[in-house]
C-alpha cells in the first residue's frame, strides 16, 4: 500500500525532475546563440579638469567630462532565456602609469518586454570619469565601447561586446572655468 506521504513524495520528486529537465532545455536552446550586434556611439562634448578627488585619495586627479550620442536596437537579443540585459558604456585607455584603464561611464538595465530601441542624444554620463592620476589631459586614444551582460532565466552569464566602438581624444588644456 502507498501512504499519503509516499504519494506526495513521488509526486514532488517527479515534478522537480521535470522542472529540472525543462530548465536544462531552456538553457541548452539558447547557449549557442550569437548575441553581438552593431551600435553607433559618438561623443559630442569633451573636456577635462584637474580637481581633487575627495571620494578617493584627495589628490588632484584628471576628471573627464563628456556627453555622447548612442543609437542601437537590441530588440532581437531577447528570447525566452533572457531575463535582463545590463548595458554598460566603457571608456578604455592607456596612461603612462597604468597599462590598462577601464571606466564605466553609463549603464542601463533593460528587462524583457521593455523598450530596447535606444536613441540617445547628448546624454550625460552616469558616473564620474576619474582617472587614476593625471593621464586624461591630451590623451589621444580613448575608446568607448558598449557591452552587455546577459542575465538569463537559468544559464550562463556572458558579457558581450558590441561592434562599433568610438575613439576620441581629450583636449590638451584643462578647463578651469565652471561648465
Amino acid at each position: 500500500m502507498h501512504s499519503v506521504l509516499q504519494r506526495g513524495n513521488s509526486i514532488l520528486a517527479y515534478a522537480l525532475s521535470v522542472l529540472a529537465f525543462l530548465t536544462f532545455c531552456c538553457f541548452i536552446s539558447t547557449v549557442f546563440l550569437n548575441y553581438t550586434t552593431n551600435t553607433d556611439i559618438k561623443t559630442v562634448k569633451v573636456l577635462v579638469k584637474n580637481v581633487p578627488d575627495y571620494s578617493a585619495s584627495r589628490e588632484k586627479n584628471d576628471l573627464g567630462f563628456l556627453t555622447f550620442d548612442l543609437k542601437t536596437d537590441l530588440t532581437h537579443l531577447f528570447n525566452w532565456n533572457v531575463k535582463q540585459l545590463f548595458l554598460y558604456l566603457t571608456a578604455e585607455y592607456t596612461t603612462p602609469s597604468n597599462e590598462l584603464n577601464q571606466v564605466v561611464l553609463w549603464d542601463k538595465i533593460i528587462l524583457r518586454g521593455e523598450n530596447a530601441v535606444l536613441d540617445f542624444k547628448n546624454m550625460n554620463t552616469k558616473y564620474y570619469f576619474w582617472d587614476d592620476g593625471n593621464g586624461l589631459k591630451s590623451n589621444k586614444n580613448i575608446t568607448l565601447t558598449l557591452s552587455w551582460n546577459i542575465i538569463p532565466n537559468a544559464g550562463l552569464l556572458p558579457n558581450v561586446f558590441a561592434t562599433g566602438s568610438h575613439s576620441f581624444k581629450f583636449p590638451v588644456e584643462y578647463t578651469t572655468s565652471r561648465m
Partner: peptide, 21 residues
Amino acid sequence: HRVLKLHEKDNSTVKFLTKGD
C-alpha cells in the same frame, strides 16, 4: 557586485572598484 572601474599596471597588478546594480 559588478566591477565599475579598473586600473591595471604593466606588471599586471590590478585594482578595481565595484558597485551593486
